[in-house]
Structures are given as C-alpha cells and as structure tokens.
Simulated scan of single mutants.
Amino acid sequence: MYIKNMPRQIRIEYPGAHYHVFARGERKDNIFFHNEDYLKFLEKLKENLEKYNVNCLAYALMPNHYHLYLITNEANISKFMQSLNSSYTNWIKAKRDIVGHLFQGRYKAILVDKEEYSDVVIDYIHFNPVKAGFKKLPWQYKWSSCKYYTDKTQDLSFLNIEFILSKYSDNLNISKDKYKQNLVNKENYDLPHRNLFKGIALAGEKYKKEINKLITNQKEDIDLPSTKMNKKRGAEFYISLIKNHFNISEKDIFNKKYNNKFRKYFTYLTKKYSRLTNIEIAVYLKIRPESVSNLYTRIKEEIEGKKEYKADMRKIKCEITRSDP
C-alpha cells in the first residue's frame, strides 16, 4: 500500500483498489476532436491496462473530459494514469498540432467502496452523455461502455462487464436485459460527491474504517486536502492538537527559546492549513505581522528538510485526517 504525496488530495494505492477516475481538458477545451481520437484513446487504454495489470469496468469519453472505472491489481494507479495520459497527450498534440497543456491539472482518482458504490458509479458514468445532452438513452452513445452492458451482440475484449452483470444473473444475456431495465427505471444518476469520505472516497462505514487504517499505516508523507482549510481549523484547534500530541503546555508552544520546534509547527500549520491572517498569527507568535511570511518560508524549508520534523509533521497530519468526519 502506498499513499502518494500530492497537493490537495491524498492518493491511496493498494492491490484490488477500485477507482472512479476522471480528467478534463485544459480550460474545459476538447481533448477529442474526431472519431480517430476516441479510437486512439481506447487503443492507449487497452495497451496500458495490459501493461499495468489494471481492469476497466466502465468508461465514457466526452469531447472535453473522460470517466473511467478501474480496478488496480497492483498498487499502481499513479503509474497507470501517468502512462495513459502522457501517451495519449503526445499522440494528440502531434496529430492535431496542439500547443500547451491538454489536460487541466492532474486527473482525479476517487476510491470506490465496491460493496456499496460500484453500481452507483458505473451507472453515473454511463449516464454522463445523457446528462450532457448528447443522447436520450445511455446505450445510444458511441463512446461509452454502456452498449457492451446492454447489447447482446456487442463485446469488447478489455472490458470487464462480469463484475456488475454477474449480480443480475449467471446468464450473460439475461444479465444484460436486467441491467438495461435497471437503467430505464433509474431516476437519479448523480454521484454523492459532496459526501466523499475525507475528500477521497465514496465509502460505507466498513470501508471508512479500512481507509483510516491505510492512512494510519502510511509510510510516505501526505498533504492535506483543501477541504481541511476551513474556518474550524483555527489557532485553538492547532494549539490543542500540538499540546495533546506532544503532551506539553500552551506556554511550551509559544516559548521563544532558540529552535523551539513546537512554535515552528504552530506557525507552519496555521499558515498553510488555516484561514488565519498574518496579523492573527502574529498575535500568537508575538511578532510583527510583516515577519510572518518570511518566518513561514524558513520554517517550511526546515520541516521539509529535517527527518525529525518531517516525521512529526507526518503524524500530526494523520491525526488531522483521522479526526475528520
């Protein structure tokens, strides 16, 4: 299991993980322009699925973005996605004479609780073209996997449809009929993304516990998602956190003795992960507001460079993450 260090999102990787992955064009510009482009992306997708031992359960390729449902048999979603996006980017930029970035930032990878949310996510992916107004029925859209779930004459070698269809019947044709009827009867095809667990997963209660264990046992540094930067993360929150973690007093935190690491941690956390202004932070540190930014820059370099500081900060970040609902 690995937890990747990336801005604004913890990325958990482990064998057997399910992901809803999506990526959008720069400035919401198109990433597909002609039928040939969609076909090339599917070709690249197939190549990388085989190369990295990843299963694809569903996809929807829209003009300016795409959705994938993936299962990684190894802890390698980052390597897979980097290879997929870069290989397609290199091809399309050469083919269409595109200058600059193709994709808008990094792709998003949301962990999916396979027991409670796999059906929901795959239905959402299949309804994406309907929601965008391209077709009235999801299986009518050419560049999604839905037709392979509903049409008895359609098959795609690299697509794993059995994971979902086996829930309906042992007979594939019957399963396709039942799945199609499920789509016909479906009234709501939105994802509960506002209820993401820790900003990274669609999870039931059991899976939430598993994610907390993965975060606790992580071996690499993590960054906190932007959702942590809210008004609840004020000075008192970080004072209490540092006091309890190190079993010290508030006086110990703000002692101006040379090289006081607790004071450094307070400065780093409030400056980076709260909405406190320099003036507000300065009141606690008893320094001039204009000195806060320079102090933070120096402390940031120390924390990211010293093993002791990095280890302490990693544990503190894990405590913050575990404490979130």
Rank of each mutant, 00 (worst) to 15 (best):
153 T>H: 11
61 L>W: 00
316 I>Y: 03
198 K>M: 04
114 K>H: 11
272 K>N: 11
73 N>S: 08
164 I>M: 06
232 K>V: 11
297 T>P: 01
223 D>S: 05
193 H>R: 13
197 F>T: 08
246 F>V: 06
42 L>Y: 04
255 N>I: 10
214 L>E: 03
182 N>M: 11
232 K>L: 12
248 I>N: 11
318 C>S: 14
63 P>Q: 09
79 K>Y: 10
17 A>N: 05
55 N>A: 12
258 Y>P: 01
83 S>G: 05
300 K>P: 00
102 L>P: 06
113 D>M: 04
150 T>N: 00
194 R>N: 13
312 D>N: 13
159 L>M: 06
48 N>V: 08
204 G>L: 08
232 K>Y: 15
202 L>A: 02
23 A>S: 15
56 C>G: 06
281 I>V: 08
259 N>F: 14
82 Q>M: 11
260 N>M: 09
309 Y>Q: 12
261 K>L: 12
233 R>V: 05
178 K>E: 09
284 Y>I: 05
214 L>M: 14
25 G>W: 02
73 N>E: 14
33 F>V: 10
7 P>G: 00
141 Y>A: 03
38 Y>M: 09
107 Y>L: 08
127 F>P: 02
282 A>N: 04
154 Q>I: 04
180 K>V: 02
72 T>K: 04
255 N>C: 13
96 R>P: 03
228 K>F: 14
37 D>C: 12
254 F>N: 04
206 K>V: 08
84 L>G: 01
152 K>V: 14
85 N>F: 12
189 Y>A: 08
179 Y>I: 02
176 K>N: 07
19 Y>R: 08
283 V>K: 15
120 V>K: 07
228 K>N: 09
132 A>F: 07
42 L>S: 03
67 H>M: 06
167 K>M: 05
159 L>T: 00
199 G>E: 00
37 D>I: 03
182 N>G: 07
146 C>I: 09
112 V>W: 01
219 K>S: 13
292 V>K: 00
123 D>G: 01
199 G>N: 01
37 D>Y: 07
191 L>R: 02
276 L>Q: 02
273 Y>C: 01
277 T>S: 15
166 S>V: 11
137 L>Q: 13
317 K>W: 00
35 N>D: 15
24 R>V: 09
97 D>N: 15
49 L>N: 07
